[in-house]
């Protein structure tokens, strides 16, 4: 029996495989692409994703039959997805670059970026040159800039993050110059890293940092060029290190895209922008 029953032996795994394949196909066939709803896919900046998600929910409730799907992954990915057609709208938490001028960018809000220290660190302010010196590894001890005798832990952002690009641009640095001890991704991660290390220095979004600092997280926001890092100075345009939160499209926005982008710029979403600790366009 063991040797003679060749047929079922050979057929069985193939049958199992075919049944599985059939199940998958059946599953796929059950859900034809739903064309009855108008859908926008928005991908990009993880800083903007929670804000745009909230805008999308409000937009859906006002325009029945529309769907706004927001995916996070970083500004660079947002731009790339718009270029290869994976997304209708990209989110970039920076201004468009010169080589991206074939894309259309619309600013929906602003965000400031500032340097943060642990609140136990006695230093109250640093000059631009001192910050630059710390990040390129020339200054390695807090003593040099008038602080305690302790080595500095430099926290840098990961490649592809627009906060990094903004920071590098402001201090006219290249990422290769930076001598980082810790490389982080999202804002909260940066804040948690600095809050857990009294000798660390990092840079993050002002809105997030301000929220955490007023909710008992042990960090201090440093002023830049003597201008305090607050949402107010970002709104007034006086804070030197700020960035526009931009929605990016491949062609001039039309149809549902245009309706959504206009909605995202309108005063109807100001409360949402404030709730995510960003700065609305006007007033």
């Amino acid at each position: 029996m063991n040797k003679t029953s060749k047929m079922p032996r050979a057929r069985n795994p193939a049958t199992v495989f075919l049944i599985c394949l059939f199940c998958v196909c059946a599953l796929l066939g059950q859900f034809p692409a739903e064309a009855k709803e108008e859908q926008l896919v928005i991908t990009g900046s993880s800083t903007m994703a929670p804000l745009v998600s909230e805008m999308g929910k409000r937009f859906e409730s006002l325009h029945t039959g529309t769907r706004i799907d927001v995916q996070a992954g970083g500004s660079s990915r947002g731009i790339a997805d718009v270029l290869n057609g994976l997304a209708d709208i990209g989110m970039a938490s920076r201004a468009l670059k010169a080589q991206e001028n074939d894309l259309y960018g619309v600013v929906i809000a602003h965000d400031g970026v500032t340097v943060i220290l642990h609140s136990n660190n006695p230093i109250q302010a640093l000059t631009d040159d001192q910050i630059k010196g710390i990040y390129i590894g020339v200054i390695t001890n807090w003593k040099t800039v008038g602080g305690l005798d302790a080595p500095i832990t430099v926290v840098n952002k990961a490649e592809g993050r627009s906060t990094l690009e903004l920071f590098l641009h402001y201090f006219t640095l290249s990422n290769r110059d930076i001598k980082a001890h810790v490389v982080i991704g999202d804002n909260e991660q940066g804040i948690k890293t600095v809050a857990g290390n009294p000798h660390a220095i990092g840079y993050v979004s002002i809105g997030t940092a301000q929220y955490d600092a007023t909710h008992g997280v042990p960090i201090r926001l440093l002023p830049l060029r003597n201008i305090p890092a607050t949402l107010k100075t970002v709104r007034e345009g006086t804070f030197p290190l700020s960035r526009p939160l931009t929605l990016v499209t491949k062609s001039s926005p039309a149809g549902l895209m245009k309706i959504f982008i206009d909605f995202a710029r309108s005063s109807q979403v100001h409360d949402l922008i404030l709730k995510q600790y960003f700065v609305p366009l006007q007033g």
């Binding site: 993880s46 800083t47 994703a49 929670p50 996070a72 991704g185 999202d186 804002n187 909260e188 991660q189 804040i191 948690k192 809105g207 997030t208 929220y211 955490d212 909710h215 600790y277």
Partner: peptide, 10 residues
Amino acid sequence: YDLAMNVAGG
């Protein structure tokens, strides 16, 4: 992950 690393007050 998003609440812990990306949303202030999450």
